[in-house]
Computed example of a mutant assay.
Amino acid sequence: MIYQIELTQQLNCDIQTAWDFFSSPHNLAKITPKDMEFVIVNDVPEKPVYAGQIIDYKVTPLFGVRMKWRTKITHVQHHESFTDLQVNGPYKLWRHFHEFMPNEEGVLMRDLVTYELPFGFIGRIANKLIVRKKLVSIFKYRYYVLEKMFNTQNQS
């Protein structure tokens, strides 16, 4: 079964600032919960993501189990969107579409995660009991960090 999680967040910044931050794989660790021990393990340039780019990392998603994960950037529309697709990792399918829409308040960021777990029925049970909750908690953490970074800087 294929699942989706869709999230939006208003960022009080211009499109260039949003794009520069989110299109750099080096910023992923800043918005990932520390207990996941996210580390990029291949040589990834500082420049923005590009179609065909491979990103290898190690992460500890559940139960202290360390795993390798490889994603490929499959599509980039400069200052608008990019998509990463899991090549190797824990999911049967993982596609993360990142979209950036300038508006009068800054930039509305939209994430659409499409995923499928392996193991059929067992995967469906794991999603219901553990995986979806974990993914939601990761994105809640990310939301909180981004609020602090982009939306509270100049407030007293």
Score class of each variant (00 low, 15 high):
Trp19Phe: 08
Lys128Glu: 00
Tyr143Phe: 13
Tyr115Glu: 05
Asn12Arg: 11
Pro90Val: 07
Phe119Trp: 15
His79Ile: 04
Phe21Tyr: 14
Asn103Lys: 01
Phe139Ser: 01
Trp69Ile: 07
Leu146Thr: 08
Ile40Met: 10
Lys128His: 09
Ala18Trp: 02
Lys68Val: 10
Arg95Glu: 15
Asn27Pro: 11
His79Asp: 11
His78Pro: 00
Ser24Ile: 11
Tyr141Thr: 01
Ile5His: 11
His26Asn: 09
Pro90Ser: 07
Pro90Leu: 11
Tyr143Leu: 08
Asn42Phe: 04
Val65Gly: 01
Lys134Gln: 10
Val145Ser: 00
Ile54Val: 13
Glu104Phe: 00
Glu104Trp: 00
Glu37His: 12
His79Lys: 14
Asp84Arg: 00
His98Ser: 10
Asn154Arg: 13
Gln86Met: 13
Lys68Cys: 14
Tyr115Pro: 12
Phe38Ile: 02
Glu99Phe: 07
Glu99Gly: 12
Leu129Ala: 10
Asn42Cys: 04
Glu105His: 10
Glu147Ser: 12
Lys47Gly: 14
Lys148Val: 02
Gly120Pro: 05
Tyr50Pro: 00
Val41Met: 10
Ala51Gln: 15
Phe121Ser: 05
Trp19Pro: 05
Pro61Tyr: 08
Pro48Thr: 12
Gln10Gly: 10
Tyr144Gly: 07
His26Tyr: 08
Glu105Val: 03
Phe63Trp: 13
Pro33Arg: 01
Met1Gln: 10
Thr74Asn: 02
Met1Leu: 12
Thr71Cys: 09
Leu62Glu: 05
Thr60His: 03
Asp43Gln: 13
Arg95Met: 13
Asp14Gly: 13
Val107Met: 06
Val113Gln: 01
Val136Lys: 11
Tyr141Met: 01
Gly52Ile: 07
Trp94Lys: 01
Thr114Cys: 07
Glu104Ile: 01
Glu147Gly: 09
Lys148Arg: 14
Met1Gly: 09
Ser156Pro: 12
Lys148Asp: 12
Leu146Trp: 04
Glu104His: 01
Asn103Leu: 03
Leu135Gln: 02
Val41Thr: 15
Arg142Ile: 04
Tyr57Cys: 14
Thr8Arg: 10
